[in-house]
Design a protein around this nucleic acid. Structure first.
Lengths: 157, 157
DNA sequence: CATGAAAGCCATGGTAA
DNA sequence: TTACCATGGCTTTCATG
């Protein structure tokens, strides 16, 4: 059982690696790559889906080619940290599609997020009209990315 | 022609939105959602792929369920900014799978990146043994994410 | 108990009109 | 754009280690 579990885990990890890199592979292609049968691959993927390990299949889009070539790291401190105020700000974050990522942070800033904008003027408008005019935003700091050195959605498994 | 171009652009944008949300949709399902024929959808997607707008199809994995529940924002300043030294550091970044994103930044820090770790101890080991022992790293600052408020790969289109 | 092999059904992609 | 056809993948069943 130890061997079979190890084998299964290794198979799962290899499947996760492959699917994170290219989710368009067929079960047959995956089976060939991991050295298993298509049926076994199908069952494992289904188990990984049902256990919540495998999330959605998404298509990545080139940011520069759709006019979102500028990434800005924005840090924000709130005026009030009451639960309802925080929820209000987080709802604002979810409602703004140019905010791709937002993390609640330890340290001097409450939130850190990544915004994609068309250009500097576009970002300035977003900052002034959306963020700084939000009633619960106390202070903010913006840092522009000069280039994207690395971006991957693939977690190490 | 103006109308047809506008229609095409709107169709493309809607296709991009749908594919960014769920790349497992069939051409038939996409066609139904955007109110076009499957053949038209197929040709537009093919054009978007060849123009480089549409990137790879990937499967997202739940970080916490694969033991990568801790996100850390790491900022780094280099000792030397010579081209070759920068390339060396960026090669290091590409070689470390726990670094999911890395941006070359304006401002006081040279690079900002997001690292996923199993826990604080795991991150400490990564920081000490990998980052701070890198010959070209001068200073660094780490900020732990308390929670992921938002994470999406979907650009606004 | 999980895997591998085999087969049928079905949906899909691609093409022709 | 619509309709068609051939291709291939998905899913189940059964036998096996």
């Amino acid at each position: 059982m130890k061997d079979s579990n190890q084998g299964a885990q290794s198979l799962d990890r290899r499947l996760l690696r492959l699917l994170q890199a290219d989710a368009s592979l067929s079960h047959a292609a995956l089976a060939e790559q991991v050295g298993a049968s298509p049926a076994s691959v199908w069952r494992r993927i289904r188990a990984l889906e049902q256990s919540g390990v495998l999330g959605p299949t998404v298509r990545l889009v080139d940011a520069a080619r759709v006019g979102r070539g500028v990434s800005v790291m924005l840090q924000v401190r709130l005026r009030s940290h009451a639960a309802e105020e925080r929820r209000g700000f987080e709802a604002f974050v979810h409602g703004r599609p140019e905010i791709l990522e937002c993390h609640s942070m330890s340290g001097e800033w409450d939130y850190q997020m990544r915004i994609v904008a068309a250009d500097v003027a576009d970002y300035e408008r977003f900052l002034m009209r959306e963020v700084l005019s939000h009633p619960n935003v106390a202070t903010s700091a913006s840092h522009f990315a000069l280039s994207q050195v690395k971006y991957t959605t693939a977690l190490p498994v």
